[in-house]
Amino acid sequence: MDALIEVSGLTKRYGDTLAVDGVDLTVLPGEVYGFLGPNGAGKTTTLRILTGLIAPTSGDVRVLGGAPGRADVLGRTGSMIESPALYPYLSGLDNLRLLAEYAEVPRKRINEVLELVDLTDRARDRFSTYSLGMKQRLGVAAALLKDPELVILDEPTNGLDPAGMRDMRRLIRELGSDGRTVLLSSHLLGEVQQICDRVGIINSGRMVAEHNVEELRGEQELVIRATPRNKAHDVLAGFGTVHQYDDTLRVQVDPQRAAEVNRVLVEAGIEVSELRSTERALEDVFFELTSEEKADVG
């Protein structure tokens, strides 16, 4: 499968500061890709390079098979970089109208995207009177105006209330399920875990991981407290690798087999006082990776 975004050895230097340092990144067609990293890690710089706003110092970048910033590539890409930057003195509708003119998009598409982000009722109000959440939604509407194959969204849930965040998550999932490719940068790791198929983690300008969300979170385990413990250990060994932590046992097995594990233990005459699944959250992985990186650098 040809990648929609292929980045290798991407570097961006501002004077003595290395903002992006040899980043490799691949986004496949139809996937929702989460781009994670702490503030100042190089996420926005990378996204600006992908949209042709800034030129890389070195490295190869291909977006939709072409160089970023080319008219035919931009025509198939919708983006919102950093924050929704629109004209404060114009209404939401006029902002979309003029973007539609630039992008050569038919006007009927404006109503469709306004409906998609639930802004039809406020479309005639000035952009400057919008709340942060409404501005964010209009920014996403602007990104979707071209009905793009590739959508690049930088922190799209910034400023949204919980209901707005839920709606945005739903919208991004819908975009992904429509066959569109979405590259999403976010600080909200729980959100990325829910929405994304794959994630890349960038720290201090360097890519420290790029995996499926599940791969990144690692093997899932069952935590079991049972007596006698040695006998339980032997029985559980039949399901997978068993580790002992304090007075609990952890067995690497699909948590969906928890009922089966419980039945086998009970049938073996073992008393089970606790059985639960444990999963590493993406947040745990993120902090592990970014703090390791910091320790290395330091």
Partner: peptide, 17 residues
């Protein structure tokens, strides 16, 4: 306003804008 980045990520090139 930062709107330059918004219009430059539409279809036309910088010269055309």
């Amino acid at each position: 306003w930062g709107t330059l980045k918004t219009i430059l990520t539409q279809r036309p090139g910088r010269g055309a804008v």
